[in-house]
């Protein structure tokens, strides 16, 4: 048939790519993205204030790298990536249900798994861009007088990689939750700011039930300072194992999300 000649080969990757580009475009235009861009720039404003304080009021008590690593842990790791992953991850499925646009997608020749993975990837890239831009700006602002120090860039790279890994992992979890729980945001908030915030301070192996434990295991522990209490009970998992576990969690929840989305019946309320 003529149609078949004009179509690209039907592979899972082609479907994934097509879904990705559709939702990357849509995600860029969404109001939510603009709001979260602003949110992810909050630490940049804080970094600016710290720097202005040091320059204009000659407060030299805090070093740039120290403030930077605390901004990464306090703001990005424990707040921004959680919020981003929660709202973007749950919306992979729920915004199609709430907006009643699901029928446009489920009546296309794409597998349901490629829809979940393509949209997850599109939203993940958007979140990574939001986060990385903010982190790099914070880094430049806080270290502008020592930008020639090569070792600082290694820290920047490592911190950014940990945040990206965290985003991927949390987003996979929330994507899964969004496929089968109606009020997924509420559940996600309880998980993010209840479970994750509490369980990580439990001594022994209990803290290994929190994703943030593995992320913190990859970050250098601050030896001193006013924010060190946030890490004081961390009993880190070896870095390689932590990365493997985070990737495993990501793959597991994405697989579950695909499975649930493929077989669950979604009835759009009229």
């Amino acid at each position: 048939m003529e149609r078949n000649l004009k179509e690209k080969e039907w592979t899972f990757f082609n479907s994934f790519q097509d879904v990705f580009s559709f939702f990357f475009l849509l995600g860029r235009k969404a109001k939510k993205t603009k709001v979260f861009y602003l949110l992810s720039f909050m630490p940049v404003a804080m970094a600016l204030m710290v720097q202005f304080g040091q320059i204009f009021y000659s407060r030299n008590s805090l070093s740039g790298p120290y403030v930077f690593s605390n901004i990464i842990i306090t703001f990005y790791l424990q707040f921004i990536i959680l919020i981003l992953a929660l709202f973007f991850g749950t919306s992979v499925c729920s915004e199609e249900l709430e907006g009643k646009t699901l029928s446009y997608l489920t009546t296309r020749p794409i597998s349901k798994s490629s829809f979940i993975l393509g949209k997850y990837a599109a939203y993940s890239l958007l979140m990574v861009l939001m986060t990385v831009v903010g982190v790099v700006l914070c880094f430049l602002i806080l270290n502008f007088n020592q930008l020639g120090r090569f070792s600082l860039y290694k820290v920047l790279l490592k911190d950014t990689a940990v945040l990206v890994l965290g985003l991927l992992c949390y987003t996979a979890l929330f994507t899964f939750i969004g496929t089968f729980i109606k009020r997924s945001i509420m559940f996600g908030l309880i998980f993010s700011f209840g479970w994750e915030n509490v369980i990580q301070y439990f001594p022994g192996s209990t803290q290994r039930f929190a994703i943030v434990h593995y992320l913190k295991s990859l970050l250098p522990s601050p030896t001193s300072g006013r924010f060190s209490f946030l890490l004081f009970r961390l009993e880190p998992t070896p870095p390689v194992l932590a990365v493997v576990i985070l990737l495993g969690i990501t793959a597991l929840f994405l697989g579950l999300a695909c499975l649930v989305f493929s077989y669950k019946e979604y009835i759009l309320e009229e």
Binding site: E7, D18, V19, F22, R108
Partner: peptide, 8 residues
């Protein structure tokens, strides 16, 4: 965008 999902 929706046509794209038909792999044209």
């Amino acid at each position: 965008g929706l046509l794209k999902l038909h792999h044209f």
